[in-house]
């Protein structure tokens, strides 16, 4: 009775599923490896100090991506600065304070909708909304990115808030702590990992964004300080990649930028993984 082996049908199911899973995993691994090796292989030889440290000049037929790097940094900083308080605040309100379920439902639905809207539409609306009033500039791009990243920050924060056990809150309330104090001492520390993860995701998303920026931030290559920079049009690295590859056929430069973006992506992911590990460790203590 016990040593009857599995029926043929069940065994077939086992084997088939296992094979499909391994095949899929293999495909995914191969894909990642190929992309990494190919892009780095094509791009790294084209990265020179000159490329990184100069701006492009039609006179000398030189291409430099310094302005694009600076623009990227500016836009990331500006976006995060605006979106963080908005997103975290909204998430805390929704999970800790909101009592009107209907309203919460509407807000969550709105956030969901927002995160589903393609970036090209953000670009279009950003163009109408911001660029038409303040001109095509990095700030217009940053504001567009704020709307885009709001749901991300909200969601990651909310999710980590939900993992803070209700008993912690009850424990704190039981000790006579007020609502705000509970939020500050128990809930907020619990969601730091969510906030940081959200930030990292957002940085990644901003770095990778092109469609939303093309029409809002433009594609100029001028070197500026941060204040002037935000008020002037400028291409981020990603937009520059697109322009160089698609419009100008400069594949060497495009691959160089692609390699840089790839390395940044790796770094960002490392950072995210480290953050998560760190917090997981702290949580298990």
């Amino acid at each position: 009775m016990l040593n009857k082996s599995l029926s043929k049908k069940r065994k077939g199911f086992e084997v088939l599923m296992k094979a499909l899973m391994l095949l899929s995993v293999g495909l995914t691994v191969a894909l990642v490896l190929f992309l990494l090796i190919y892009v780095l292989g094509q791009g790294v030889p084209n990265i020179t100090w000159e490329l990184l440290s100069t701006k492009p000049s039609y006179l000398t037929e030189r291409i430099g991506i310094l302005p694009d790097i600076l623009n990227t940094v500016y836009i990331v900083l500006a976006t995060l600065l605006i979106v963080l308080p908005l997103g975290v605040g909204a998430a805390i309100y929704l999970t800790e304070y909101a009592s009107n379920n209907k309203l919460v439902g509407i807000i969550e639905y709105a956030a969901e909708t927002l995160s589903g809207i393609p970036s090209i539409i953000y670009g279009l609306v950003g163009m109408l909304l911001f660029s038409n009033s303040m001109g095509t500039c990095l700030m217009a791009g940053a504001l567009t990115l704020v709307i885009m990243n709001l749901p991300t920050i909200m969601r990651t924060t909310q999710e980590s808030l939900k993992t803070v056990p209700q008993s912690y809150r009850e424990g704190a309330f039981g000790l006579g702590a007020g609502k705000w104090r509970v939020v500050r001492t128990v809930v907020l520390p619990g969601c730091v990992d969510g906030v940081i993860t959200g930030c990292i995701l957002s940085v990644g998303r901003i770095l990778g964004e092109s469609a939303a920026l093309l029409f809002t931030a433009g594609f100029a290559h001028a070197v500026n300080g941060i204040i002037d920079g935000l008020a002037a049009p400028g291409a981020t690295l990603t937009v520059a990649l697109y322009v160089y590859a698609k419009e100008q056929g400069e594949f060497g430069v495009a691959f160089a930028i692609a390699a840089i973006l790839m390395v940044l992506t790796v770094l960002i992911n490392f950072a995210a993984a480290l953050v998560q590990k760190h917090f997981a460790k702290r949580r298990s203590l």
Binding site: M1, L2, N3, K4, S5, L6
Partner: peptide, 16 residues
């Protein structure tokens, strides 16, 4: 279990 060693290789753990 009923005379069969449950850790023996022949035993199918799912049937057990």
């Amino acid at each position: 279990y009923e005379g069969t060693d449950i850790f023996s290789k022949e035993v199918d753990v799912n049937n057990l």
